[in-house]
């Protein structure tokens, strides 16, 4: 069951990658920028554990890099680090509550933007500080909105499993 659930989460991650490449890139025209893959990786870390999140983040980032990236490997590294950081924060003792998730998404989005911009700057890419400033404001907001869609989907299987477990115990 756990394996099946993890496979489902991987499928969701794959859907997020496809949406990120096809649809979310398009949304940038309307100045809506969000990172569905990052939110999904964090969700997987929260619900499936950090080791699984790190590995999922690495492969998701790598696919994203191959399909759209300028520097192959940079998103793979960042998503893996995101999952690691989220795992540390959760393991310190924060509960899996809504506010914790919101703060997690907000802080990791901002750190991600900084790291990504820094990496591209080091690789001699042109950086627009106006665009960066705008993304600092909008990205966390839209990512948090995406969290409200992705996290319940990731949690859905878990809830069902708990219910089944409870019924089973009852019958016994």
């Amino acid at each position: 069951m756990k394996f099946f659930q993890k496979m489902l989460h991987l499928a969701l991650l794959l859907i997020c990658i496809i949406l990120q490449v096809t649809f979310v890139g398009y949304l940038n025209i309307f100045h809506i920028s969000l990172d569905l893959v990052m939110v999904a990786v964090l969700g997987i870390t929260v619900y499936d554990g950090d080791v699984y999140g790190i590995i999922a983040g690495f492969f998701a980032g790598l696919i994203l890099d191959i399909m759209t990236g300028q520097i192959i490997g940079i998103n793979a590294l960042l998503f893996a680090l995101n999952a690691f950081a989220a795992g540390l924060i959760l393991r310190v003792g924060f509960e899996k509550k809504l506010l914790v998730n919101v703060v997690l998404i907000f802080s990791i989005t901002e750190i991600n933007l900084l790291l990504l911009t820094g990496s591209y700057y080091l690789f001699n890419f042109k950086v627009s500080f106006n665009t960066l400033g705008f993304e600092f404001l909008t990205n966390p907001f839209f990512n948090i909105l995406a969290m409200f869609v992705i996290f319940p989907v990731l949690r859905a299987g878990r809830k069902r499993k708990e219910e089944i477990g409870f019924i089973y115990k009852d019958k016994a």
Binding site: I54, F58, L62, I71, G73, I74, L77, A80, L81, F84
Partner: peptide, 12 residues
């Protein structure tokens, strides 16, 4: 994460 960092540096 250490293995992945090394792997990413190689890939980049």
């Amino acid at each position: 994460i250490a293995v992945i960092i090394v792997l990413c540096i190689v890939i980049i």
